[in-house]
Amino acid sequence: MEGSYLSFAHALVVTLLILLVFSTNNTVSSSIATSNLDSKTDIEYIRTSCNSTVYPRLCYHSLSVYASEIKTDPKVLATTALNITLKATKSTARMFIKLSKVHGGGLMSKEAAAAMADCIEVIGDSIDELQDSIEELGHIGNSNFWLTMGDVQTWVSAALTDEDTCMDGFKGKAMNVRVKTLIRRHTIRVAHYTSNALALINRYASKNLAYP
């Protein structure tokens, strides 16, 4: 009799353990499925948003890696785009400063060196404008939404103009072709980032959200 009772108790424990494992596996599977669905939604949101930019491919590739942070938040999307642009602009400015010190051996004429100095100055202005934009977006609220957005749009537009001014300064200047190509490539890259950031800022503004 005692043996039968122990066998029954053992079978009951085994059954409960099987049910527990099955329930846990279902919960884990459900969580993974939900996570995957959320991830696809976040990625698709970035893809759709980037379609409103002039350079959608660059936009998607630069922002999709931050999908889990951006989710479907237009403010975070715009801020992330600005941070990416700021990082690229700072990197370009550092490279230009190094190039400005190399104007011998026919790499850069005095006129080109002067244009480089002007370029470094306006790129510095661009960095300031992007930093101001990021800071202002962090303070946006109900009462100052449109005023703040107006400032941000103005600053980012000015940064884009600064980048165009930088490139224009080298027209007709005698300098090494490879150096000029390098300057042009990096300036255009930064301008494309800035253009995309501005498009996403405008998209965010169009949503008329104060507290996304």
Rank of each mutant, 00 (worst) to 15 (best):
A112M: 03
I123G: 01
T165G: 13
I123H: 05
A117T: 12
E135F: 12
A93K: 10
T89H: 01
M108C: 08
G105L: 12
F170N: 00
A67T: 02
K71L: 11
C119H: 04
W155I: 01
L130E: 08
D164N: 15
C119L: 09
A117N: 11
R94A: 12
V156W: 02
M95G: 10
W146Q: 15
A67V: 00
N83A: 08
K75T: 02
Q153H: 08
S126V: 00
L86E: 01
P74H: 10
T72W: 07
S143V: 12
C166N: 02
A112G: 06
D164A: 11
V76H: 08
G124Y: 03
E121W: 11
A114S: 11
T80A: 04
D132K: 08
K98D: 12
T85C: 10
A158Y: 07
L86C: 04
H139D: 14
G138N: 13
M149L: 14
N83P: 01
K171I: 11
E129K: 15
M116Y: 00
K101V: 02
T148F: 07
A67P: 05
V122R: 06
S157G: 10
K87C: 10
D73Y: 11
F145Q: 15
E163L: 13
T72D: 15
D73Q: 09
C166G: 04
C166E: 01
